[in-house]
Nucleic acid binder design. Structure first.
Lengths: 189, 189
DNA sequence: GTCTATAGAAAGATAGAC
DNA sequence: GTCTATCTTTCTATAGAC
């Protein structure tokens, strides 16, 4: 009977990926369970066999989206991309419009403030993972003294996430690109 | 009949301030017209005598909240507060939890991405005002060469707004305060 | 202009057949 | 486990009396 369990897991994963896509593009409130399930080639009624609520699915989707971003930023290729390349990918126009990657930390930041505890916990977990990753990358650079790497990683995260989320909110594309460029040049060493 | 017009304007202003408060604290989707009107000591039905839609009210509320913040940050007192004081007020824990001021740029940033054109236009207008203000303040500092003041103001805005909105989303208060402090120290000259 | 009442639509969650 | 059907609630927006 092991194959049955695996079949269910695959369906669950399909729902999760459908939800992650939609939530990142439209936020929590503008996506319905009906839409998520249709996008996963299922119907409404099957949803609660996999998740207990929309909020639980949202929390898991945030982690799923973060893992997708990690794969994009830090592929398992033999050579990790240089730090400046990480910054420029994160602050690119393709990230701004969501065509390359979709960082949940930036795409959902003020949305999270309105959500329940499990969602905030998932978001905080992803944020800690992101800043730890930045810290490790910064420690490999020669221009950062060890003791300040934690503070530096928080500063980098705030500037990266802040500029990207702002750029997405503005209706003036030239200004949005100015903003991304100004932050990119400031963060590149 | 001038007094009648003034009476209506006062009522409209009361709705606007009720809405600004609620929208900043709970976001667009989690506030209903009923709640806004009750908070303004009126009932649902009177709303559409003042605004044509919830979205229109939202757009105006963003500007109203920005003006309230401006009064808080830049009072008309004879001496303007020093720049470092501006930064530390903006990145304070009382701003994080919304008890002192409520910057719509930070409180609503990812919410705006999902809204219609008039809302994005209002948000962008406020952002331009904010960065212009920062630019003027930076130009008075002696450590910024004139040509870079625009880029510098964008960088400051991204880091301030990014760290504040992030701090509000995290469920780990110690980390949130670390984040605000790291950004404050980096931005203070 | 403000009120009560309600239209009309959408969405989260559940029930029961297969 | 997935389906169709539905319960229940909530919300924007409108109608009509005063």
């Amino acid at each position: 009977m092991a194959w049955k369990k695996e079949q269910k897991e695959q369906t669950r994963q399909r729902i999760l990926e459908s939800a992650a896509d939609l939530f990142m593009l439209k936020g929590f409130e503008h996506v319905g369970i009906n839409e998520i399930m249709t996008n996963a080639k299922l119907t409404r009624g099957a949803f609660y066999a996999h998740f207990s609520s929309k909020a639980e699915l949202y929390a898991e989707s945030i982690v799923t989206s973060a893992l997708a971003m990690k794969d994009f930023l830090n592929p398992l290729h033999p050579s990790a991309p240089p730090f400046n390349s990480l910054i420029s990918h994160y602050l690119s126009s393709s990230h701004m419009n969501g065509t390359s990657m979709r960082c949940p930390l930036a795409f959902l930041v003020s949305d999270i403030t309105q959500q329940d505890a499990q969602v905030k916990a998932a978001y905080t977990k992803v944020f800690k993972g992101f800043t730890l990753y930045l810290k490790q990358r910064l420690e490999k650079q020669d221009d950062v003294e060890g003791g300040n790497a934690h503070s530096q990683s928080l500063l980098y995260a705030a500037t990266m996430i802040g500029s990207l989320s702002l750029a997405r909110a503005l209706d003036d594309e030239a200004l949005a690109l100015d903003l991304l460029n100004a932050c990119q040049h400031a963060l590149e060493s």
